[in-house]
């Protein structure tokens, strides 16, 4: 790692102020950023650690919404969202491994927007709202492609607000070495329709499978998508699975998620 300074602010306001200097970067749980720094793929002058900002930690429900602070760990979401939103808690409980889940945060995952990360599928698959230090961004406007989001320099995800669905499930086809999704599909059923978001598959990052959403909104069963197919254009192709394989997995995992939705 190149040398850098590290600051540990106690409030969102102090974190934003600390991020105002040149080449400062926010540090969530560090489970992606620290390995990146070790590879010298990032060279900040200063890291602003967000894990000490108490107002950014916690899980609460209010009027059908589940609000999760940006610095809340995956382990905490897995435990504390289990009764209010089991589909999301289940997703959180399978990210990485137990030690990673004790450090990694939802805000860090969404800010990084890894094309194979799990949380982007949940945020897009529920139409969540990303709440930052200065505005609110709808998930549909937030994800802008692989490792790219609507966040500006120095902007911090302070919380994420999820509309709690009637039923939801996340199915991850595990890439067992990285523990990321080879393909992951989040399905959420609301009174006014179904949303389906896919991670791990596309070169453009997380996306909604709108044909499946329409079919499942009319008939929420795995059979409803049996006639659909997913184009392999723009799918990730690597030694773990080629584009056609990933396109096939999207449909398989969507069907499994619908069947398992609770």
């Amino acid at each position: 790692m190149y040398a850098f300074d590290i600051e540990r602010p106690k409030s969102v306001a102090d974190a934003v102020a600390a991020l105002g200097t040149e080449d400062a970067m926010p540090l969530g749980g560090g489970q992606t950023l620290i390995p990146t720094l070790k590879q010298r793929l990032a060279s900040p002058a200063k890291l602003v650690s967000l894990t000490g900002v108490e107002e950014m930690v916690g899980v609460s429900t209010d009027h059908g919404m589940l609000r999760i602070g940006g610095a809340t760990t995956h382990a905490t979401v897995a435990a504390e969202a289990a009764s209010s939103f089991p589909g999301l808690a289940g997703l959180a409980s399978h990210i990485g491994d137990p030690a990673v889940r004790n450090r990694g945060t939802i805000g860090g995952s969404l800010a990084n927007n890894d094309p194979a990360a799990c949380y982007p599928a949940a945020a897009l698959g529920t139409g969540a709202t990303i709440i930052t230090s200065n505005r609110e961004i709808a998930a549909d406007d937030y994800f802008e492609g692989m490792f790219t989001t609507a966040l500006h320099e120095g902007e911090v995800i302070t919380a994420v607000s999820f509309p709690i669905p009637e039923k939801a499930n996340y199915q991850k086809f595990l890439q067992p070495a990285s523990r990321f999704a080879l393909v992951g599909v989040f399905v959420a059923k609301y009174s006014d329709g179904v949303r389906v978001a896919v991670t791990g598959a596309s070169n453009n990052g997380v996306f909604r499978w709108e044909e499946a959403e329409a079919a499942l909104s009319a008939d929420f069963s795995a059979d409803a998508i049996s006639g659909l197919s997913v184009s392999a254009d723009d799918m990730i192709s690597d030694l773990h699975g080629d584009a056609a394989y990933r396109a096939h997995l999207v449909k398989v995992m969507t069907g499994r998620a619908v069947t398992a939705a609770a």
Partner: peptide, 14 residues
């Protein structure tokens, strides 16, 4: 909490 000490800075353990 179990964590990987190679993926956390000493300053964060203050």
């Amino acid at each position: 909490k179990a964590v990987k000490s190679c993926t956390m800075f000493a300053a964060e353990a203050e």
